[in-house]
């Protein structure tokens, strides 16, 4: 009879303790501050020096006028903008990520375009170059049914403090430090913040994560990692 009580208690401990232990020991979905805090916050370190392309065409102001603001004039002939120097490579050594970058835009469905090749990562070319003011967005497929896991699959285990290195068009590197990792349901992803073009320089890495929903052959969430510039 006593043995029955012991088995009863042990059984209950096992039944309740196993799921609780599993839940407590699995990796956190988030690390560091939230994505929105990380992007809006002032930088804790100075921005890497990256020369922004200087707009051409500014002409010295006309003759000084006492009370009037200086008026600059320029030739108004149509011009083609110089191509923006696109970054070429991203690496996250602590997680074994090292992938070439492709400039990408907007897909016909309105979402950010991503490279078909899951081993490559897209840089959103309408946003800033990494190092310029605003949020530079790098994103890639987490996997593909034929190609397997993508280059950014390890993003979900990124830790605060991990270093990200972006190689620019001229070979110069900018270095970044992860301050935030968050798994966010796609419906509530703060797109205007993630793709913001103002504010201090930020590097934002995005891929998919969370549960897979077979009916729509897609993931429920996005994994978003925000990094600040390192000197």
């Amino acid at each position: 009879m006593r043995s029955s009580v012991v088995v009863l208690v042990l059984g209950l401990v096992l039944a309740i303790g196993t799921p609780i232990t599993w839940a407590l020991t699995r990796p956190d979905a988030t690390a560091g501050v939230t994505v929105e805090q990380a992007i809006d916050a002032p930088p804790s370190t100075p921005a890497p020096s990256s020369a922004a392309p200087s707009p051409s065409g500014a002409v010295p102001p006309s003759a000084p006028a006492l009370d009037l603001p200086p008026v600059t004039t320029r030739d108004a002939a149509p011009t083609v903008a110089a191509p923006v120097p696109a970054p070429v490579r991203v690496s996250l050594p602590a997680q074994g990520v090292d992938a070439p970058l492709d400039p990408v835009g907007v897909a016909p469905d309105g979402q950010m375009e991503l490279p078909e090749d899951v081993d490559r990562v897209g840089w959103y070319r309408f946003g800033p170059v990494p190092g310029d003011d605003g949020s530079a967005v790098l994103a890639g497929h987490v996997d593909d049914r034929e190609q397997g896991l993508g280059a950014l699959a390890p993003l979900r285990s990124t830790e605060v403090g991990d270093v990200v290195v972006v190689t620019g068009a001229n070979g110069a590197e900018t270095r970044w430090q992860v301050v935030s990792r968050e798994v966010i349901t796609k419906e509530v992803l703060p797109l205007d913040t993630i793709f913001g073009r103002e504010g201090p320089p930020r590097l934002v890495l995005v891929t998919c994560g969370g549960p897979f929903i077979p009916e729509i052959r897609s993931y429920r969430d996005n994994v978003v990692v925000v990094a600040e510039p390192l000197p």
Binding site: G11, V13, A15, I16, A139, D144, G150, V206, T207, G209
Partner: peptide
């Protein structure tokens, strides 16, 4: 901003539920 960021089509990186051996342990306990 774009309307979203797509990301994967295979489920290889999905967050799984509790692994089967742990589920078994829980059931055995019950």
């Amino acid at each position: 901003a774009p309307s979203g960021v797509p990301g994967g089509s295979a489920g290889l990186a999905a967050d799984e539920g509790m692994p089967a051996p742990l589920v078994g342990l829980t059931v055995a306990g019950l």
